[in-house]
């Protein structure tokens, strides 16, 4: 499962890396598809990515409650931001999302990598056993974020 350990997606935008990074982080609420990609769905009001290591990625719901999706683990503006990813689940079951910004032509390539099965306590054991590690973590993630 070596190539399946990390799920990668990328997109190129016409913004400079500085602007792309700022839009992705400080401007998160402007573009994140909250109605489909949140804990509260239609009851989700807002989402904020607090800047800097230790900052939270947190959703505010219509009833005033908050749902923490993850915590920033890397903050290297305007090149990279990484955060744990555990919407609706305990942090110990979190996976990791890394977003990298690279200058490409007159724009920026934004690559998102979702990984983290190896961070589990049994990661070493999971590595050699199909279905026990990454796939199961994905299951936990999807079961709550879906």
């Amino acid at each position: 499962m070596s190539t399946d350990d990390v799920l990668r997606r990328s997109v190129t935008v016409r913004l400079a890396p500085d602007d792309a990074f700022r839009l992705f982080t400080a401007g998160l609420a402007e573009w994140w598809p909250l109605d489909t990609h949140s804990v509260g769905r239609v009851d989700a009001l807002d989402v904020v990515l607090e800047p800097g290591i230790g900052g939270r990625l947190v959703e505010t719901l219509a009833d005033g409650s908050a749902a923490v999706w993850g915590v920033v683990t890397q903050w290297d503006a305007p090149r990279r931001v990484a955060f744990t990813w555990h919407p609706g689940t305990p942090e110990t079951e979190g996976t990791l999302v890394e977003v990298t910004f690279r200058a490409a032509g007159d724009g920026t390539e934004v690559e998102l990598a979702h990984s983290g099965w190896a961070r589990r306590a049994d990661g070493e054991r999971a590595r050699g056993s199909y279905g026990s590690g990454w796939e199961l973590v994905l299951g936990r993630f999807a079961a709550t974020a879906g």
Binding site: L7, L23, T36, H37, V110
Partner: peptide, 21 residues
């Protein structure tokens, strides 16, 4: 599930790219 997750993150990045445009 993997296919669903691919779609999930494609949706997120697609929304980002549309807004950037």
């Amino acid at each position: 599930l993997r296919g669903w997750l691919d779609g999930y993150w494609s949706g997120v990045l697609g929304a980002f790219a549309a807004h950037a445009d």
